[in-house]
């Protein structure tokens, strides 16, 4: 049987690259920007994962069926994430919590809500 495995030398090189990327991602965490920070962190993580998959896991020697199986899980995950977030990203902005009669009338019903949206319950509202 023709055994195709990554050579030791390649393994060491890949490991070195992974360590460099690890240092990079820790440094990049200094970026004080939500969106950019996430993108950079995820990009670096993806590159690391790809290095592991392609070299350590010998996918570069694999046939198309195996490659399809490798991709399947990630494609499935993207579907889950994308369509689930299509809901979260397009929901109406968090409720307007007005000081409606209810708020005055049945405060205990709103305890959980008040914990979540304290801004709506300015001090001074009481029965």
């Amino acid at each position: 049987m023709a055994a195709h495995v990554t050579s030791s030398r390649s393994c060491y090189i890949v490991f070195g690259a992974l360590l460099v990327l690890l240092v990079l991602t820790v440094i990049a965490a200094g970026i004080e920007n939500h969106t950019l920070g996430i993108i950079v962190a995820l990009l670096i993580a993806t590159v690391k994962a790809l290095l592991i998959i392609v070299y350590f896991m010998n996918v570069r020697f694999a046939d198309w069926v195996t490659r399809l199986a490798v991709a399947a899980g990630f494609v499935g995950l993207i579907v889950l994430l994308a369509f689930m977030m299509s809901d979260y990203l397009t929901r109406d902005p968090v409720d307007e919590i007005e000081t409606s009669p209810v708020t005055r009338a049945a405060p205990e019903a709103f305890e959980a809500l008040a914990l979540l949206h304290p801004e709506a319950f300015a001090p001074g509202i009481s029965v």
Binding site: A69, G73, G76
Partner: peptide, 27 residues
């Protein structure tokens, strides 16, 4: 080999669900 890769695909989805929860709440 293929069997293990398919099993890993299920693992991706298993952990992926937690990542999905993470994504929603982080947002």
């Amino acid at each position: 080999n293929l069997g293990m890769w398919i099993f890993l695909a299920t693992e991706v989805m298993f952990f992926g669900s937690l990542f999905a929860a993470y994504t929603a709440y982080r947002y």
